[in-house]
Nucleic acid binder design. Structure first.
Lengths: 207, 207
DNA sequence: TGTACATCAGTGAACGCGCGTTCACTGATGTAC
DNA sequence: TGTACATCAGTGAACGCGCGTTCACTGATGTAC
């Protein structure tokens, strides 16, 4: 039966949300359209009324998942200006590592995206650039803009790599997994502090 | 028919090699046992004479792929002692990024391994620890052993993240992808130089 | 060394299953008059 | 405002297909005598 415009929008949103979470948890190839539709309270036919293919849904789900994670990074500390350390503590936390379904879509899917079609890569790239901007805003305004961007690019990719490596080693060695998170937090903290003009780099004592 | 011991070992090796390459190129869920067997010059039944399941083959293929990549990192410069810069230039190169099938299995599969069973995670962890050791050997002997290990852990995860992020963005924005590699190479180079005792950190001019 | 035979890697047909996608149909919505 | 009807999101059966795995069988290898 036909359905109100409002309901249509709700259903589409439910499909995207369900897909985003399931793709993060089990990978794009690891979940079927039947399960996504079911979790959104619909049948698979409804999915094809909204999206031309599973791949199109994947692109939209990744875009949504990435925007949501980035929004959380910035909204979390409303009021005060977030520092790089704030972002590192949140992103490179064991909570984030252990929350595959609820966490950043880039960390959950980085190596998979390389094998997906262009539009999925576009969604990744947009989210990545956005996170680079968030990191860049926390760096002191020393050096040229190009240097700051370059540094932010590397820090962002390192954050993603830190979470991905911590997750990949978690089942085999929880201790190594924790160590990776701690080591990456400390390294990037130093790197960020370094960007500050002439400030004597403090010995980082964070656990 | 029965087959000589030598031939059995050859066939097993061919299966592992074919699986390792295909898994890197298309993901574990993206390739079937039929194609792996065919590429090894066998039928899928032969695969099950050697391995109890596709998953067991995946674990062995990852272990092999990781060991091979690490071997290449060290063997490449036989004779002289490799520096951190040598490793960074090789690992964070556009050639490595563009050679999904032939490159490092950890960069190709990092985010996928998180969803695989324990034995796959074990293979990742072994390879990761090995690469950490390779990196650690290039760092100056300043600071405590624990500090050097921590730094190597972070550098290794960052290298993997750099290649994974560069690959994920390559289809959408080749320029961004290149920038990520350059930025990560420069950042980690600085980080490595820093570890040297009291040496004034040189401005890094590598392209 | 020569012969008889047990072993077992490899073959290829077959298994049930879930995949992504299509399609005839339904019926409440939203529009035209 | 009330009525007639076109629209189209959603349903659920059906499609062909390739998946991972099993199994009866083959026949050269390697062993026991």
């Amino acid at each position: 039966m036909k359905v109100s415009k409002e309901k249509v929008a709700q259903n589409r949103e439910a499909l995207v949300q369900a897909a985003a979470r399931l793709f993060r948890e089990r990978g794009i190839d690891g979940v079927g359209v039947a399960e996504i539709s079911k979790q959104a309270g619909l049948t698979h036919g409804a999915l094809y009324a909204q999206f031309p293919s599973k791949e199109a849904l994947a692109a939209e789900a990744l875009a949504d998942g990435v925007a949501r994670a980035n929004g959380w990074m910035t909204a979390r500390l409303e009021g005060r200006e977030p520092t790089l350390t704030d972002h590192l503590d949140a992103y490179l936390s064991s909570q984030h590592r252990d929350d595959l379904g609820g966490g950043c879509a880039m960390a959950a899917s980085a190596s998979e995206v390389a094998r997906q079609p262009r539009d999925v890569s576009v969604a990744f790239t947009n989210g990545f650039s956005q996170l680079v901007g968030i990191i860049e805003r926390t760096l002191a305004k020393s050096g040229s803009a190009a240097e700051r961007r370059q540094r932010s690019l590397a820090i962002t990719a390192a954050m993603i790599g830190g979470v991905a490596a911590a997750r990949a080693s978690a089942k085999a060695s929880p201790a190594l997994s924790d160590d990776i998170l701690v080591a990456m937090r400390r390294l990037l903290d130093e790197v960020g502090a370094e960007a500050k003009p002439r400030a004597k780099r403090a010995r980082v004592t964070r656990r």
